[in-house]
Computed example of a mutant assay.
Amino acid sequence: MKKSEQQHIDRILFLLVTTLMFIGLLVVFSSTLYIASSRYNSVSYFLEKHFLRVLLGFVVMVLFAVFVDYRKIREYALYIFISVLILLILVLIFGKGNATRWLSIGPINFQVSEFAKIGMMIYLAYLIEKNRWRITDFKFGFFPLFFVVALVSGLVLLQRSFTMSFLIFVSGIILIFLAGVKVKHLAIMLSISFPVIVLFSIIEPYRLQRLLAYIDPGGALGRVRYQALQALIGLGTGGLFGVGPGHSRQREFYLPLAYDDYIFSIFGEEYGFIGSLFLIFIFFAFFYRGIRIAKYAIDDFGKFLSAGITFLIFLTALVHIGVVSGLLPPTGIPLPFISYGGSAMISNCIGVGILLNISKQIKH
């Protein structure tokens, strides 16, 4: 094999994700330092748990990148999708938590929707490749793709996870659009879907309150924006260069879930506007490398699977940063590879592992 044709993973993408994981360890430790010390009498209580999840995610990413040929995944796409549907139904019946998003299998607790999004993208990429020759046909080309996206996002929505459902829906629609379906077909189904999305965004009282508080932050529902306002205070306190690592004040019970849904605020407070721009740059660089892999993938399955995974992770990061910055209504969504949590970390690492494996098949 010629040197120019040697197979190797996208080292830049690997470096970007590894950097995000390292940043996550630093910020999770900083954002949990106070609460871990006061509640658990151990400053490293959360860090130890997060480190194990990062380590497991890293191992999973490497395993998928090196040993799991993405072309073999195509053969199991239907079975993966069926498994996703079964898990999404099971979590509605046996799910734990106020929003029934968690499923327990023995000692393992995991958020099903985090893994469902990857499973859906695998099956969607498989269907696009299989039906590429009739993609412009509504009945046999477009509708099966839209049905898959609507079904998965709908089941996730029933778990009272509106933001995750919306991200899955938008990412799936983008992938369908990139597949080359007729715009009029897409417009018809989106016009039908839009009222449903609006209905579910206001049908739950807490969602309506968040939306109203976002529209009128100084109104009677200003208390609903408490987290969002505290997040903005954190970003503002950081100034240009930040208050320094480990010196955040918002983590001290001012900002609930500072280590999860609002971790970008702690990062911005400690590393400032410059640090925040650097972190945003990493996510945009991730997006560029992911789309580049999609562009040069050797088959349609690889092209659309890498594009789907890239959009899923990138849009999640944008929504998290948008919420913390006050650009979007308050909601809970973790920052990929940085926020505390296991399900999101493992599922995103699976996605990146597949991305890296697809990049390895490209002749450089």
Results as ranks from 00 to 15, higher is better:
residue 226 Y to D: 09
residue 254 Y to L: 11
residue 298 I to D: 12
residue 192 I to P: 07
residue 297 A to Y: 01
residue 241 F to T: 06
residue 187 A to S: 11
residue 310 T to Y: 00
residue 260 D to M: 14
residue 239 G to C: 01
residue 196 V to H: 11
residue 273 F to K: 00
residue 201 S to L: 05
residue 233 I to N: 10
residue 255 L to H: 06
residue 204 E to L: 13
residue 262 Y to R: 10
residue 303 K to C: 13
residue 304 F to R: 05
residue 211 L to T: 04
residue 244 G to D: 06
residue 218 G to W: 10
residue 220 A to F: 15
residue 194 F to W: 14
residue 240 L to Y: 06
residue 224 V to D: 07
residue 219 G to V: 11
residue 202 I to D: 08
residue 259 Y to W: 12
residue 279 L to S: 00
residue 250 Q to C: 09
residue 303 K to W: 05
residue 193 S to F: 10
residue 308 G to I: 04
residue 203 I to D: 07
residue 229 L to G: 15
residue 242 G to C: 09
residue 255 L to T: 07
residue 201 S to Q: 00
residue 187 A to R: 09
residue 200 F to R: 03
residue 263 I to Q: 04
residue 205 P to S: 01
residue 196 V to I: 15
residue 201 S to T: 06
residue 242 G to L: 07
residue 194 F to V: 15
residue 236 G to E: 09
residue 299 D to W: 07
residue 266 I to Q: 00
residue 215 I to D: 04
residue 197 I to H: 03
residue 206 Y to S: 09
residue 227 Q to E: 07
residue 287 F to V: 07
residue 192 I to L: 14
residue 246 G to M: 02
residue 227 Q to F: 02
residue 226 Y to G: 10
residue 309 I to E: 02
residue 234 G to N: 10
residue 225 R to M: 15
residue 206 Y to T: 06
residue 278 F to P: 03
residue 195 P to L: 09
residue 284 F to C: 08
residue 264 F to Q: 02
residue 276 S to P: 04
residue 308 G to H: 07
residue 238 G to Y: 05
residue 286 F to C: 05
residue 205 P to F: 01
residue 242 G to T: 04
residue 257 L to S: 14
residue 302 G to H: 01
residue 301 F to Q: 14
residue 293 I to T: 05
residue 259 Y to P: 04
residue 236 G to M: 05
residue 293 I to M: 00
residue 207 R to M: 09
residue 207 R to L: 01
residue 193 S to T: 14
residue 223 R to Q: 14
residue 298 I to L: 14
residue 222 G to F: 06
residue 209 Q to N: 13
residue 265 S to P: 08
residue 261 D to S: 14
residue 292 R to I: 04
residue 263 I to Y: 10
residue 272 G to I: 05
residue 301 F to H: 13
residue 288 Y to F: 14
residue 289 R to C: 08
residue 195 P to C: 10
residue 308 G to M: 02
residue 257 L to G: 11
residue 231 A to Q: 05
residue 243 V to R: 01
